[in-house]
Simulated scan of single mutants.
Amino acid sequence: MQEQAIIKSSISKQIAEQLRAAIVSGRFKSGERLPTEDELATRYGVSRATVREALKRLAAQNLVRSKRGPAGGNFVNQPTHAELAESLSGAATLLVGLGALDIDEIIEARRLLQGSCLKLASTSATLTQIKEVESALLQQKNLSLSDKAFCDADVAFHRALVDASGNGMVRFVMYTIIEALVPITNMVVAYVKDRREIIAFHEALLSALKQRDQHMLATVLDNLLDYLHERFSVAKAQHEQKSR
């Protein structure tokens, strides 16, 4: 058997991985300035261009931000929950699109995890957070929204509900699940086009949140997810018929 040559990782990638490990381990704190490009180039024995490429990799992961001027440089960034979840949600969305995750699994995960979010939100949501949920719903009611904009507003609404839970780890996980459902929501909206039903469920969720009614929140969420599951089947059939 003929052996194939092993392709080694690029030097800039290896430097980025080492710097990332230092950030994750806490050696570099959030907001702290990293060594200069010259200092890093000397430390690793590489050119400034290689260091610059490594820093670009970290910036793409929202771990580093650059600042110009006399007090400028490269600083450790503290990504938001949404930014951190984005990389995971991209993978989840891809799995959904490829059929590796089916609708039953996604609905079940959302029922369990978002149900927990709503339970927390019913007791811990601030008035400001409830206003944010209300604002997201108001945006979704805009009749002039395109299908894509409507789905974006749908994501914003559920993110606002998750934020109201006040639990950072739950928010991080739920952002991924919400984003993973976007392809499904897009299909439902594009082929079934019944926005009024979705808005009605969202109005009921907001009302139950304002009343701090855990039982009603759970009931409405169950009904919404059952509706999405059923309408997805209809939308999928219409999509397949159109494709044929």
Rank of each mutant, 00 (worst) to 15 (best):
E39M: 11
A71W: 12
L55Y: 09
E53M: 05
V76E: 01
R52H: 13
V64D: 01
S89P: 10
G69L: 05
P70S: 04
R65M: 03
V76G: 02
G73F: 10
E37F: 06
T80Y: 00
F75Y: 05
Q61A: 07
A59I: 13
R65G: 03
F75H: 01
E86C: 11
T42A: 12
N74W: 14
N62P: 01
T80A: 05
E83I: 06
A49P: 00
V46D: 00
S89H: 09
E37W: 06
A71P: 03
A49H: 02
V76A: 02
K56Y: 07
V46A: 02
L63A: 07
A85H: 11
A54Q: 06
P79Y: 13
G45R: 02
Q78L: 14
A59K: 13
A85D: 11
Q61G: 01
E83R: 15
E37C: 07
K56C: 02
V76S: 00
K56I: 06
R48L: 04
L88G: 11
L55C: 09
G69W: 09
V51T: 08
R43H: 15
A49I: 00
A82I: 06
S87N: 12
L58E: 03
A54F: 03
R65H: 08
A82C: 06
L84K: 12
G72N: 04
L63K: 08
E39K: 13
N77I: 08
L63W: 09
A49K: 06
Q78Y: 08
P70H: 06
N74A: 13
A82H: 08
A82P: 04
L40K: 14
R68A: 14
T80P: 05
E86F: 14
L55D: 02
S89A: 15
R57I: 05
L63T: 05
A41Y: 05
E83W: 07
A59C: 07
G73T: 12
K56S: 07
L40E: 04
L63D: 02
E53A: 09
V76P: 00
N62W: 07
Q61K: 14
L55G: 04
A41F: 04
P70I: 09
Q61L: 14
N74H: 15
A71S: 11
R43I: 09
S87Y: 14
L58F: 01
L84N: 10
R57Y: 10
G45L: 03
L58R: 00
A49N: 04
E39R: 13
T80I: 03
N62C: 13
G69N: 12
R57P: 02
L40Q: 11
L88S: 10
E53V: 03
G45V: 03
S47D: 11
N74S: 13
P70Y: 10
R43K: 15
A82Q: 12
A59D: 11
G69Q: 09
G45C: 02
G45W: 00
R65W: 04
D38C: 08
V64T: 04
R65L: 05
L84W: 08
A41Q: 03
S66W: 10
T42V: 07
H81L: 15
G45M: 01
L58M: 01
H81A: 15
N74Y: 15
K67I: 05
S89V: 06
R43P: 09
E86Q: 14
Y44W: 14
L40R: 11
V76I: 04
D38G: 10
L84F: 08
L88A: 10
L55F: 10
G69Y: 08
V51D: 01
L88I: 10
H81P: 12
S87W: 10
A71Q: 14
S87Q: 13
T50H: 03
V76L: 01
N62R: 15
